[in-house]
């Protein structure tokens, strides 16, 4: 038996919006600790790692570890049938379920709807991600990061990110011309609009802009985003999901041949 309830479906909708364009399908691994998803996009260039801890749910019960293979477009269709303020319960009866139910309850309890979704067998590679001490860790407003990725995507396919003590610079160029956005570190680190940089050594890396734009679909989840970078290893882009977990995106860099 698996059952997990959230007071408001809005969080789950935002989580799904943050991954459904990058991934077609994914295994939801459910344990007593919570729900985890790790999946690569089709081209194996980026990876999504999602964690929702059990203590962040209003109610959570997982008698035995189970893996639910989910078609994310199907789940997104079902989630769109809920109102943001609905309570949502995810329920699977068996230890090895072939279907999962979503129950939406309106705040006044006057409307209850349930949707059953077929699960699928997904045979996917799992990657071991080593703990890394990154050369630069930048925290910045998530809306600013989204704006930069969107604006610069018009100029070129590749985005160069350079980070130093002075700040972080995003650059691109293409047929139209070139573009640079520099952000300086702010003095007040506690505010939502703060830009903070922890640096061991300066870093310059090149990434496909298209994937960064996909990652910014997580912007509604968190006012801040954290970028962790070291030379010649994948970028880590991390959004917190309130106090209940986080969504991490890894993106392999482009490297000179």
């Amino acid at each position: 038996m698996f059952e997990a309830s959230l007071a408001q479906s809005a969080i789950l909708k935002k989580v799904l919006d943050a991954i459904k364009d990058l991934l077609n399908e994914a295994n939801f691994e459910c344990t007593d600790d919570g729900i985890k998803v790790q999946a690569m996009d089709n081209s194996h260039v980026s990876l999504v790692s999602l964690e929702l801890r059990s203590d962040g749910f209003e109610k959570y019960r997982c008698d035995r570890n189970l893996s639910m293979g989910v078609n994310l477009a199907s789940m997104a269709k079902i989630m769109r049938c809920s109102s943001n303020s609905d309570k949502v319960t995810i329920k699977a009866q068996d230890d090895n379920p072939d279907k999962v139910s979503f129950i939406f309850e309106s705040s006044n309890q006057e409307r209850i709807s349930d949707y059953e979704m077929k699960l699928m067998d997904i045979d996917a590679d799992q990657l071991g991600i080593p703990d890394t001490e990154y050369s630069c860790v930048v925290k910045m407003p998530s809306a600013e990061f989204a704006r930069i990725c969107k604006d610069l995507n018009q100029f070129g396919e590749s985005l160069v990110i350079s980070c130093s003590k002075e700040g972080i610079k995003f650059s691109t160029s293409g047929d139209l011309g070139s573009a640079n956005v520099k952000l300086a570190q702010t003095t007040d680190a506690d505010k939502d609009d703060a830009v903070t940089i922890e640096m061991r050594s300066p870093v310059t890396l090149t990434f496909a802009c298209r994937y960064l734009n996909h990652f910014t679909k997580a912007t509604p989840l968190s006012s801040q985003v954290q970028l962790s970078m070291s030379d010649e290893i994948p970028l880590l882009v991390e959004y917190r999901i309130g106090d209940m977990g986080c969504i991490k995106y890894y993106l392999a860099p482009k490297i000179d041949d």
Binding site: H44, V45, L127, G128, T206, A208, A252, D257
Partner: peptide, 13 residues
Amino acid sequence: MSQKKLSSFFKTI
């Protein structure tokens, strides 16, 4: 420049 795959950095488990 060439786009690397994640398997160049993270090992399959």
